[in-house]
Write a protein that binds this DNA or RNA. Structure first.
Lengths: 365, 365
DNA sequence: ACTCGCGCCTGAAACCTTTTATGAAAGGTT
DNA sequence: AACCTTTCATAAAAGGTTTCAGGCGCGAGT
């Protein structure tokens, strides 16, 4: 049973294939009665223009790829990515664009990228210099980088360093001196460099210490997995080796919640004996017990902004932009002070923002 | 700046375009030195076979579509779908297949479906008879239906009725007589029919009542939105109009958690004054306070099974199957009894299962 | 002497749609 | 009767790949 093609429809409606094409794409050019005759025939036959043939001709499919550095199963299990995809989806949906999630196949991102039938990519958590990403530039496939630096493409980041600094500063201001910092494991290719999100957050923490004439010892910084279990075991292990922190700075909420769980198990009360500040403000942060104080970053908005940028580049070849969105300290119940908000960038840059949220070329570096 | 094509590579390597194609797809046919010469030229030029052109010819893109009846933003915000996608993704990932989420564009699913460059669809929460889905059959695009009935396609469901029956039976056995049932709003096209998941769960609840010579009054069944707020307001409103339930049966976890929130606000203790059983066992159910007793259904497994079925149909045109996975009562802290497990289907069907989990043509109807 | 097979590669057709240029028929106007 | 307008038809090209049927040169078998 063959697939039904434009020829079948043309035959049934008694018109040329060109007429059928027009009926779908430019009905004005045909008499109204002809159009309905053709459309009726198409419906009866169950015809729909072959997306591949159409894409081949127009060089456009109407599908955007979202590139993740991790297996797809871990992507959907991660609330951070869920919020991010929500933002991307809200834009693509309203324009009738499809969304293809692209993840490494058999460990190779490059092959997955090459085979993806998309018009452009939103790339998250990967650097433009990444060996798998670089070929895109050569092939002329547009992309936007999120949470990573880019010279030749637009990028969308948040003020990681400012947020981290605000969190650390808040705790130091309150007198804490024994602070445990939880950060990510480094990807294998940048072992001792402090690049990307991880590096920026760590620099923010460290700067707050230095500004007060303090130092952030290496053994107060623990690298672990970005999971509940990672935060849990990291805190438990630090405790077991004699550390007695009065506060925790975690570079991700999920690690912070894990650390709280370990602390509770060890008989510590949060925030009574231990104050904790996370990073990201995932939905779970507000629902944890106690509700987690954290650095809020606009995850969904980040997805929206990146997608709009990509679509604009696709449509009109718009200029590259480097956008940095603000973060803010959000005090809930894992810290003891009165709730207040301290917004980074928004305060630092004041009137220079666009749309109240975007900042071009943030000074935060 | 043109995209680099197979012709450019052929020219650079001094061979025909066919040779280039072979170098990529069937290197055995060419001399090894020729292959490396071609591949080198390709890499230098940044060439990758155009997915559309390739698909046009082979009638195969290596992309599966997942069809949702809702806007994409609500899909990613829904933990149920996240778990489901996790299952789908775990299968597609391991085979190097892409995943395209397809949602209604401008309210029309049909256009979105027609334009999607995919080899087949996993359809969730939509009936085969749906007006938007029906054209697929005609066009010969394979699909698998999840959480819905299908005559002409494979389907994957869980034992909704059995699970609901087990939940209701548990509460009735414990002496509850004032039970509030929370169920979904019906989609507009099946207003008074009790179709699909909603109908099956409702039938399960009702059957437990009938079997004990009791009846489930219409005003004890409240229809609301499948959200936290929906469950919350539904319970609050029932209470306000004089209902004094001692137990709640909710057809979804998120509604159950909403109802618990409302109950707490009204001064009721869960499970002391009110026992609650949800449905689905989303990750949040275990994290809620108190942890929610619920009917567990294998959400991720459902995605995996459906995807494997679809891929098999694509590859070998395998036979249609109608699979029903078991559900089980999972007692946590929103009910008072000792934790125990009661598994439906697994118990009912015993040895007739395949792989210990699947059941063909379940007797549950 | 002739054919066959072999190893390696080429040329052309096929896949399906869209777009464009050209032309023609039908019907109406001047 | 000459001319114009409307409405489509026809044909061809483009888009990039894969597949199928050879072609070429040459040594081996008959």
């Amino acid at each position: 049973m063959r697939r039904v093609t434009i020829h079948d429809v043309a035959g049934k409606a008694g018109v040329s294939t060109a007429a059928v094409s027009h009926a779908f794409n430019d009905p004005e050019r045909l008499r109204a009665t002809t159009v309905t005759r053709i459309l009726d025939a198409a419906r009866e036959l169950g015809y729909a223009p072959n997306p591949h043939a159409r894409a081949l001709h127009s060089q456009r499919v109407g599908v955007l790829g979202v590139l993740f550095p991790q297996p797809i199963a871990t992507v959907f299990a991660n609330p951070f990515f869920a919020s991010f995809l929500e933002g991307i989806g809200s834009v693509t949906d309203e324009r009738g664009i499809g969304l293809l999630t692209v993840t490494p196949v058999g460990g190779s991102l490059e092959r997955a990228i090459a085979a993806a039938p998309v018009d452009g990519f939103v790339i998250i958590g990967l650097d433009e210099r990444n060996a798998d990403v670089a070929p895109l530039r050569k092939r002329g496939v547009p992309f936007v980088v999120v949470d990573g630096d880019a010279e030749t493409a637009s990028s969308v980041n948040v003020d990681d360093e400012g947020g981290a600094h605000a969190a650390a500063e808040f705790l130091l201001e309150r007198g804490h001196r024994e602070v445990l910092v939880l950060t990510f494991h480094a990807p294998p290719d940048e072992l001792d460099k402090d690049l990307g999100v991880r590096g920026r957050r760590l620099r923010g923490y460290r700067r707050a210490f230095v500004e007060r004439g303090l130092s952030l010892d290496d053994d107060a910084v623990v690298r672990t997995f970005v999971t509940l279990a990672g935060g849990d075991s990291a805190f438990a292990q630090a405790w077991a080796t004699g550390a007695r922190p009065t506060a925790v700075l975690a570079a991700s909420d999920i690690m912070a919640i894990g650390a709280m769980r370990a602390a509770k198990r060890l008989g510590l009360r949060v925030p009574g004996d231990l104050e904790v500040i996370g990073f990201d403000d995932i939905p779970l942060a507000a629902a944890s017990d106690p509700a987690l104080s954290t650095i809020h970053q606009p995850i969904t908005e980040k997805g929206r902004v990146a997608t709009r940028l990509l679509i604009r580049e696709l449509d009109e070849g718009g200029p590259r932009e480097r956008i940095v969105l603000p973060t803010e300290l959000l005090l809930r119940d894992s810290t003891r002070a009165q709730p207040k908000k301290s917004r980074t960038l928004a305060i630092a840059k004041g009137g220079t923002e666009r749309e109240g949220k975007r900042t071009l070329k943030a000074a935060a570096r």
